[in-house]
Simulated scan of single mutants.
Amino acid sequence: MDSMKQMAKPFFTLFGIALIIAVIGRVGLAIMAATGALAFDYISASGVAILDVICSILTGSAFVAFLFAAGLALCLSTAGPVLYGYLFAKKGGPARPLTAFLWGWATALMAIVCLLIVVSGILSAVQVGSMSSKLPGAPVLVLALVVFAAFLGTLLGAASMVVCACIARARAGHSLSAQLLAATALCGAVVMVLTVGTFATLNSVAINTTALLAWFAADVAVNLVVLFAAARMARAPRAAAAPAKAKATAA
């Protein structure tokens, strides 16, 4: 029974984080529904947003398999920042923006690879052949995936550094649960706004390239701001604790 009580706070914190993400996601969906970014009708012959066309091929078992693939990619993307924070807490070393970004990049790239491995088994040979004929060569696709993974790496790197900042503030006497819940709400709201804007621009019949690039640039800029701001917060409690420790040693 004592072990249950000891585990209660961490688990309730986890549940709270999940609920916050669910509510923020629901708000984002409501915004997209109100602005017409989401399609609720059947696929028609023409005038269909590009993402609706892509998703229309996922029917029956293929759709279920894609859910598994997407879930695997999301689990890995979530585990990366958690692992980075765990290593920061365990080893006590400094949390560096560069390492957070690089491991975020690597995590995103591996998530994409896992996604492609599963997805390659849910498309028929005819579908693969049809898509291959409309896509650029393999080197271009590989480069595009690496660049896209780097884009996602800024987000995962920022998430990793936010986790480290929460841990650092917990060492300074703040509640870790409260820090994680507050960070989830604040950062989640920012990510939701950026995701809604990017998705709405991408999911259109005729994509406005300039607007889409502007949203991607905004995504990267905000991710980098959060990354370096969280890194500074992660160092601040440690820097503040150093004089106190030196004073106690001298006494």
Rank of each mutant, 00 (worst) to 15 (best):
V128I: 12
L156V: 05
S77D: 10
A158R: 05
V142T: 14
A79Q: 05
V142W: 11
F101G: 00
T107Q: 04
P81T: 04
Y84A: 06
V140Y: 09
L135S: 15
F88V: 08
W103E: 12
V113G: 03
L76R: 04
I112E: 13
L87R: 11
M131D: 08
A100C: 02
V82I: 15
T78G: 14
C75T: 12
S160R: 01
M131S: 09
F148Y: 11
T107I: 13
L145K: 02
L152A: 01
G85T: 10
G121I: 13
A95F: 01
L67F: 08
L102F: 14
Q127V: 06
V147S: 01
L72H: 03
A73C: 08
F88W: 03
V146L: 14
A100N: 00
L102P: 01
G80K: 05
V118W: 06
A125R: 10
K91T: 15
L156M: 09
A111H: 07
A95S: 02
L98T: 03
L72A: 15
F151P: 01
G85F: 13
G157I: 02
S160D: 00
L72P: 01
L123C: 12
P81N: 08
K91M: 12
P139V: 14
K90L: 15
G157A: 05
A108C: 10
V64G: 06
K134P: 04
V64Q: 10
F88L: 05
S132G: 06
G104S: 09
L145G: 04
V118K: 09
L87S: 06
V119P: 05
Q127K: 03
A100P: 00
A69H: 14
L135M: 15
R96Y: 02
F88G: 02
Q127D: 14
C114E: 09
L143W: 02
V147L: 11
A159Y: 05
A79Y: 10
W105T: 02
P139N: 11
V64R: 12
